[in-house]
Design a protein around this nucleic acid. Sequence first.
DNA 1: CTCATTTGACCGGC
DNA 2: GCCGGTCAAATGAG
Length: 361
Amino acid sequence: MENYGADNNGELNRIISELTQGKDLVHQLQLQLNAPYSSSSSSPETTRDFLLHNIQSKFDKALSLLQYSTGDTSNSLLPHSNSVPIPYFGRSESPPSFTASPPHSEDSDRDLEPKDPATRKRKSNTPRWTKQVQICPGVPVEGTLDDGFNWRKYGQKDILGAKYPRGYYRCTLRHVQGCLATKQVQRADEDPTIFEVTYRGRHTCNQGGGNANNNVMNPEPLTIIPQNQEQNLGAGSRNEHQQIVSEPQQNPQEILLNFQRNLNISNDNNFNFNTDPNNVPFSTFASSSDIKSDQDYSFVPNSIIQSNNFVESFSPSYNFGMSSNSEMNNFGGKQNGSNDYQFNSMGYESNFPFDYQGFSS
DNA sequence: CTCATTTGACCGGC
DNA sequence: GCCGGTCAAATGAG
């Protein structure tokens, strides 16, 4: 589905070059980290910071090149990317023919008193955008797709004409901060490995490093990928765009994904290149909550598989801090004080709340 | 005990 | 009346 012309070959070489340099830099960083205590001229921290900065720069550049080259969807490196916004997505969505819901939520108690009629109106004119996420076949989906936000499932429904039920999620900070962002997740009929994630509303919460605006505009730039875990992707809040995360099929993707596979960062702060790429299944994104302390993690620049509209950069926000959100939404089990590695630039971990049972039935 | 998920029921648009 | 979206009690996990 992709045809790479001569121009793209040139771009591709540049991308490869950048990634290769980045890989070398990672290796250097690994040596730095492994070194007991180098008596070099500069302090270890300075050297590491320097290397880190360069690595980020290389990745950034490669991503920019990649996304620049994917600007033309006909030559897209993203098999199903669609740079065209799709304001209303789905087989059953109604046009925005009625007035907007008032800002207050629909959480009022329907049993105690009549609801404000408007409270249950569909949020038809709230921002809506869809992304498609493809998972690795055979890999359990029971985990999460990390989009940098914490979601809580509030419903699931069988949709007419759809094989799989649709899951409904809302921001966990809905009650705390009045964030009205919601999302719907549905497995595609045609390809069960593809999930359609429809986001509605903007995050007004402080998830994502406390910058709501940043949340709104930033899809997930970077996701941590524990090996042997399920895919963990999602969109940050951004007005109307579509994304697809797809399995590598063409050279550039393979290159990048091999790169991803080979680049790990382990929990002891060591960067590693896997010697065996087969060790890391593709797209084994995982719930942050599933991350075990002794696991290796793979950096995956989600931006390379995102909308063509973006030129993402690796944000150096490798926040290894703990999530302090008391309303953590850890689907598949609660989590209290476990290590939440925050690799999103938004500085927040979240789980993609897939209910595998629901989506696999 | 707390909190997230499940699931049947309800609500509102069409 | 149908259907999608949401609510909230029940349930279960940690």
